[in-house]
């Protein structure tokens, strides 16, 4: 009998909701409180909760470390790439107005969406990577010291 049965059942129900909430925060960030930073941390929190309840091994099977390592870079590249695209379209670096020829405000919307996506990817993957790094380290004290 698993001593953490209740915890497992509840978190199995909660983890998808937390991840979903992270995406709500991400894409509703233009209208209410929220944005890439918060969403990234919440998304990472859902993975960390999974690792805490079901074990680091399972979490690494679900979200492989190599994947996390690549995503860390991709997030920064998405952000910087948005800047380069606006550059190529004739505007300044990170001036999103040029993304849409008809209405600069729409271009601003798209630009903010793109860079928030970059922030989300970077923050979430860096937090997960940091947790993996600490969690995989073998403790040199036994549990009896608690």
């Amino acid at each position: 009998m698993n001593p953490h049965l209740l915890l497992r059942v509840v978190s199995k129900f909660l983890i998808p909701l937390i991840a979903l909430y992270a995406f709500y925060v991400q894409f509703h960030g233009d209208f209410g409180p929220g944005g890439g930073f918060q969403a990234g941390v919440i998304l990472a929190a859902s993975i960390i909760l999974y690792a805490l309840i079901f074990g680091l091994k399972e979490a690494k099977r679900a979200v492989p470390p190599s994947f996390v390592r690549i995503l860390m870079t991709i997030g920064v590249l998405v952000y910087g790439g948005t800047g380069v695209v606006t550059w190529l379209l004739g505007g300044e670096f990170l001036n999103y107005g040029v993304l849409n020829h008809h209405d600069p405000a729409h271009g601003q919307h798209w630009g903010i969406l793109a860079i928030e996506l970059g922030v989300l990817i970077t923050v979430a993957s860096v937090m997960v990577a940091i947790f993996y790094a600490f969690g995989s380290r073998q403790p040199d004290l036994s549990d009896e010291d608690w």
């Binding site: 960030g29 233009d30 209208f31 209410g32 409180p33 929220g34 944005g35 800047g83 670096f93 990170l94 999103y96 107005g97 600069p104 405000a105 601003q108 919307h109 630009g111 903010i112 860079i115 928030e116």
Partner: peptide
């Protein structure tokens, strides 16, 4: 300029994008 309600997101993403 941007037409989004959350000013913090707008400043964060656009005005202070750098």
């Amino acid at each position: 300029d941007i037409h989004i309600p959350n000013v913090v997101t707008a400043v964060l993403g656009s005005y202070r994008g750098f």
